[in-house]
Design a protein around this nucleic acid. Sequence first.
DNA 1: TATGGGGTTGGAGTGCACTCCAAGCAAGCG
DNA 2: CGCTTGCTTGGAGTGCACTCCAACCCCATA
Lengths: 154, 154
Amino acid sequence: MTVMQTTPADTARTAPADICSAPPRRHPRADGQDSYTISEVVAFTGLTAHTLRWYERIGLMPHVDRSHTGQRRYSNRDLDWLDFVTKLRLTGMPVADMVRYAELVREGESTYGERRELLESTRRDVLNRIAELRDTLAVLDRKISFYAMEGTTR
Amino acid sequence: MTVMQTTPADTARTAPADICSAPPRRHPRADGQDSYTISEVVAFTGLTAHTLRWYERIGLMPHVDRSHTGQRRYSNRDLDWLDFVTKLRLTGMPVADMVRYAELVREGESTYGERRELLESTRRDVLNRIAELRDTLAVLDRKISFYAMEGTTR
DNA sequence: TATGGGGTTGGAGTGCACTCCAAGCAAGCG
DNA sequence: CGCTTGCTTGGAGTGCACTCCAACCCCATA
């Protein structure tokens, strides 16, 4: 790893972010060869380059490193983080809250408790959303079956 | 119904909207006595007066009637409609699509087919959302259990 | 050496869904 | 009568999450 010459300390500082979200995802390239351009990340994540740069500006990314010419080079860890962030996004969590979580990650292990609380409250939100959606589903099904009945002739 | 002196034709034009969403909801006042001010509707629905007026402006309401002084008087039917609209909203359906649906309702029975299609596509969206949320839930649970393990000492 | 395709920046612009404002009217009350 | 409360309007403003722009740099290929 030419670009990836991080010291153990470095790794320890940035690692806790995704320690437990890896299992169900395969990276495009193995650790050690993981150095993706912004457009590769666009292809993998579905986010736009604009959004990726914007995420970085607002402090939602854990410091993406750069090529010798100053271009962004994303790692597997960054991909995992983006994956997680994307999941949080679609729970409806506001970006500001995700930035808060990113800050906690940067602050290190001492924030485990607060992070857990944040995730648990998010978890509750998700369960509520699911319940609401089920409810809506029931309403939709009732209406659909009405239209299916009345609309067979047309 | 004093206020509700609609002709049969009138009823036919506006009724199909909610024909099949009544069951699980009780109205604050019985049909015939149903004439709510905007602030009552605010209390019942949780929407703001601003939003209620705005919904009307953009064509999302099926013509709310007025008192002799020009104030809005909502009916039970309007409450049902708002209920339905609120459910659609939290599926993430854009307001423009709901306006489209409202237009179809105004156009009468001939649009049953199109309405059903719209609802069915919404239904698919809801199922997808639920699946995504489940996925997210799994990720959250993994992370939470990690923090629970590591964080017990703090 | 020119050209094309990628990348960079700060700051401005966009679209959605509200949300608010100012100015005004009508009814009820002391 | 004056005051408050609640409602009316069109149009302007807000906040969020992007999204785009102009101007620039760097490098590989023809």
